[in-house]
Simulated scan of single mutants.
Amino acid sequence: MERVLDIYKRPLNPLYPVVCMDESPKQLIAETRNAVPASPGQPARYDYEYRRCGTCNIFLASEPLAGKRMVKITEHRTKQDWALFLQDIAEQYPEAEKIVLVMDNLNTHTPGSLYETYSPEEAKTLWDRFEFIYAPKHGSWLNMAEIELSVLTRQCLSRRIETIEEVRMEVKAWENARNNKNAKVNWQFTAEDARIKLVRLYPTLEG
């Protein structure tokens, strides 16, 4: 936890960008009946019945200090999907000496996923572009990408969407609009704060 919090204290540095990455499933849902259109003084109304159309996966990476984020919608959440998304992130920072990547410690988020996707030479080259920083178990709240995912869900995806193509279109529009606003995360929680507010997580020393 303290390692992640110390990384968040670093100033903006294009050579060592701090990027947060997270992922989340999105259920695809279709309406079974036509909605009642909005009218003066009345919002549109939707029937409670719906039809499940499968799921898709949302990969999101954000650089909080720069106010940038990128989102990729995939059909699955496999090791290969994650490895391909890492390549997308690396291409956004061609001049960076090392990309500091904060993420949850999922079983797909390992260097092995790169070697299962690329040749050994390509996997090692991509791995060397990153420094992996894992949020602690039960500490996903430390990952600032969760904040961006919450905003994405609230502003764009908190409704029924039937197809992955529509999700991709809507999310791309949201990504462009939010990047144009240069929206940033004002993170203020520090390791010093944690030692006070989360004292129960620290061992008690006797003597």
Rank of each mutant, 00 (worst) to 15 (best):
N57E: 13
S150T: 05
K184W: 09
L15G: 01
M1E: 14
N107Q: 12
E162T: 15
K98F: 13
F85W: 08
I29H: 05
E206G: 15
L126G: 08
K184Q: 00
M70D: 09
T163W: 13
Q42A: 12
W141S: 04
A30Q: 13
M103A: 08
N176H: 10
S62V: 07
E165T: 03
I7R: 11
Q92C: 13
A194M: 14
E49C: 13
Y202V: 01
N143L: 09
P120E: 03
K172G: 09
L126H: 12
L205P: 13
P203G: 09
P14M: 07
Y50P: 03
K98S: 05
N143S: 13
R10Y: 12
D22G: 02
V199G: 14
R168C: 08
S113H: 07
Y46E: 06
L149S: 04
Q188V: 01
T153Y: 14
N143Y: 10
D104Y: 09
M103F: 00
S140W: 09
A135N: 13
I73A: 10
V102W: 02
V185Y: 02
L152N: 03
L86Y: 13
P37L: 12
K9Y: 03
K9F: 02
E31K: 10
E206K: 15
E166Y: 14
I99M: 01
L201K: 15
V167P: 15
S62L: 00
E91D: 11
T117R: 00
L149D: 14
T117S: 05
V4Y: 01
R154G: 04
A61R: 01
D22Y: 08
S150K: 15
T110K: 06
N143A: 10
E49M: 12
K124E: 14
L15A: 07
A177M: 00
L201G: 15
K72Y: 11
Y8P: 06
K68H: 04
L152E: 05
E146H: 09
Y16A: 02
P120Y: 05
P111H: 11
K184I: 00
Y118N: 02
Y118T: 04
Q92G: 14
K72G: 06
H109N: 10
L157P: 13
R52L: 08
T32G: 14
A194R: 15
G54E: 00
L106V: 11
R33W: 15
E146C: 05
L84T: 09
P111N: 07
N180G: 05
L5K: 12
K137E: 08
E165S: 11
E91P: 00
E2D: 00
L101Y: 00
E2S: 09
T110F: 08
E148D: 15
A83G: 07
S140L: 01
L84W: 12
Q80M: 06
L201Q: 15
F85K: 03
